[in-house]
Design a protein around this nucleic acid. Structure first.
Lengths: 246, 246
DNA sequence: CGCGAGCTTGATGCCGATCAATGCATGTGG
DNA sequence: CCACATGCATTGATCGGCATCAAGCTCGCG
């Protein structure tokens, strides 16, 4: 589908429904009953397509909705005044985007599609209203926010105390785990992001990321063909992450 | 009343009440009316004292309550299996502890008092119930979680792309801002944490933190006497943080 | 007073940044 | 179909910032 055709279909003609979505075990509706799902369906009325390279939202944009990734892949990144940029996360199907905007009513980071993607938009104030009626939904929403905080703790640990190869190993293990949870192979994957984006996320330069990939390949831990990665020895990646520094 | 509540009241005979707390403009009750505050007062029935060096909770503990710091100072830290530790934050009066535990029903980090401290415990399930009745409280609670996410984005930027002196400058500016919001001097402060804890938070070794302090002192930006810091030229700290890398 | 925890300061070395060149895949126009 | 441009990745050489190792120093406290 061309970019312009995708734009024309910005409001999808198909009925968007959590109740019939194959991501409902990963997304916001986890653990909700049929009647509850119907209520959520009313809320999630809008599906949006985001072509590769385009932002779903930008820092400074007024915050209105949370977004659940339906298909595709995103990165979120923050920037300081002087232009330094930091990728703060990568999001795949079933994951939620936009939590950063709740605090200030404006988004504080950019969310950019790394491939042609679709999201479900959930107007936040309506979602808040609904969570007051549906305790299960409220509970789950709070868990999603809390887990994001815990995930970021993990990234801080990585950035604060791991060496380059350990960081990349942790990153790859995290990716494969999330892919496996979505029914994909845990051993072969195609990276959606560049070496530079991986580096930004891991606090490394792209050359260092590239060297680490090559090292892993030389050691027989991975097979690397540009962005196509095959994990040959996952347990050695695991070792690397759990290893003491020096 | 539970045994533990009775114990706490023996230590602390005063009625704990958000409505009469001088932190109500910084803490959970921000922007709430008198009637709403009364409801919150019912919830926050328990005050707990935590002596310096003692944990308020530990990773693995069952999650039951959020805690608002009333007096004192805390650090939170996560550890990986191999013993690496990362300080993920420092919390002062009016700030909330325990958000990490919501996702898994267990705490995922340690919260340790850096000086003799007091916290208000808020049983989380009761808080959730109350937020369903008080939209203002719900809104504010969501903002607190979101701001924690945004704060961590900032730390990721710091850890991923700043050099040692920039990190320390950013840290000091953040501390002084928060102290000023509490009515303290923005120029003179006493650090509650060791060089090692600062280093852990900033992804540096304690020697590097110490050298950066000395450098700032030599440059006339700070006066450093062990943990007593005087900021002589805040604008130069600000410069440092906003500066491009090389 | 002497001990110990925490802090400072110096010397050295290493990891990853930087600079630079080359390789490789994709796309575009002649 | 080839020539060429472009974006991304790899690889090598060099450099620099921070970690590491190792003494001293300061201050509070029993």
């Amino acid at each position: 589908m061309s970019v312009t055709a995708a734009a024309a279909l910005r409001i999808e003609p198909f009925k968007v429904a959590c109740s019939s979505c194959n991501l409902r075990e990963l997304c916001l509706p986890v653990g909700m009953s049929g009647a509850q799902l119907d209520r959520l369906d009313e809320l999630v009325a809008l599906r949006r397509s985001v072509p590769r390279g385009e932002p779903l939202f930008r820092a400074g944009d007024v915050f209105q909705s949370l977004y659940a990734v339906r298909t595709g892949f995103f990165k979120t990144c923050v920037a300081s005044e002087d232009g330094r940029e930091q990728v703060t996360g990568f999001q795949m199907a079933g994951e939620v985007l936009g939590l950063d905007g709740i605090g200030t009513e404006r988004h504080t980071c950019d969310a950019v599609a790394l491939e042609d993607s679709q999201v479900c938009a959930m107007p936040f104030h309506q979602l808040e209203d609904l969570t007051r009626e549906l305790p299960d939904l409220q509970r789950h929403f709070h868990k999603i926010m809390s887990r994001e905080i815990v995930r970021e703790h993990g990234v801080m640990l990585l950035l604060g105390s791991m060496r380059a190869e350990e960081r990349l190993a942790a990153f790859l293990l995290n990716l494969t785990q999330r892919l496996r949870a979505r029914g994909f192979s845990a051993t072969s994957l195609v990276l959606r992001m560049t070496r530079e984006e991986i580096g930004s996320y891991l606090g490394l330069k792209l050359e260092t990321v590239s060297r680490a990939f090559s090292k892993f390949q030389d050691d027989g831990v991975l097979e690397v063909k540009q962005r196509a990665i095959t994990v040959l020895e996952p347990e050695r990646l695991q070792q690397l992450v759990g290893q003491a520094r020096c």
